[in-house]
Design a binder for these strands. Structure first.
Length: 204
DNA sequence: TGAATGATTTACT
DNA sequence: GTAAATCATTCAA
């Protein structure tokens, strides 16, 4: 498998295009313990400042959101609920706080390491089928906030093209019905690792 | 300075 | 199905 990082040009595009195109791509993570690789099967677009569901809504520019205003191709990592991390791809261009949340991957390599970090057998779907879960399996935390995604230790690499389905985003009801209804979640309908297929046209 | 809350996960009834 | 865990960030005073 050829695991070269995608160029910055991949990220320097409209956020919805990046969110759709990263389905099927590989996420590669290197640490002292070794390398883990996953195939991205679910992602969501957040388009601040007009997107009420985005942290950068209203042009909010704080220590936390600062990374999203920087150049595309960097990681925006944040901490929620007192125990979980989420990782985003910063996209588009400088001063446009648009980002793609990675919600789920299919384990491809380094299964043992992921299982050890998650404290469960590598055969379980729960290994990486959620945004907080994949961060734990990939050992991503807020020390990775702002790192460059065009080189190790964290980057996206090419993958096979697959079908991509759309649905509404998850867990953003606080943004109101209008924004919650935007079909800005993209996923591979054939994957068993998608966190929630409900809300999509396909069932099960 | 202090209070409220969340791009969730997990365990328990 | 529901509820608890748990803390950085944000906003108000």
């Amino acid at each position: 498998m050829d695991l070269r990082p995608l160029p910055r040009a991949f990220y320097a595009r409209p956020v919805l295009s990046v969110a759709r195109d990263c389905i099927g791509k590989h996420l590669v993570r290197d640490t002292a313990d070794g390398r883990v690789v996953g195939r991205i099967v679910e992602a969501e677009a957040y388009r601040g400042p007009e997107d009420r569901a985005a942290h950068s809504f209203g042009g909010r520019r704080t220590a936390r959101t600062e990374v999203m205003y920087g150049p595309p191709g960097h990681a925006y990592v944040f901490f929620v609920y007192g125990l979980h991390h989420h990782v985003n791809l910063v996209t588009t261009e400088i001063d446009k706080p648009h980002a793609v949340l990675l919600r789920a991957v299919e384990p491809v390599a380094g299964l043992e390491l992921m299982a050890e970090r998650r404290g469960m057998p590598a055969t379980r779907r729960e290994l990486t089928n959620g945004p907080g879960k994949l961060c734990e399996a990939f050992a991503i935390d807020r020390r990775d906030n702002g790192i460059d995604l065009t080189s190790a230790p964290l980057f996206l690499s090419d993958g096979a093209v697959c079908k991509v389905a759309r649905a509404t985003r998850v867990g953003i009801d606080y943004a109101g019905a209008v924004w919650a209804a935007r079909p800005w979640r993209f996923f591979d309908p054939a994957s068993r690792y998608v966190s929630k297929s409900a809300g999509a046209r396909s069932r099960r």
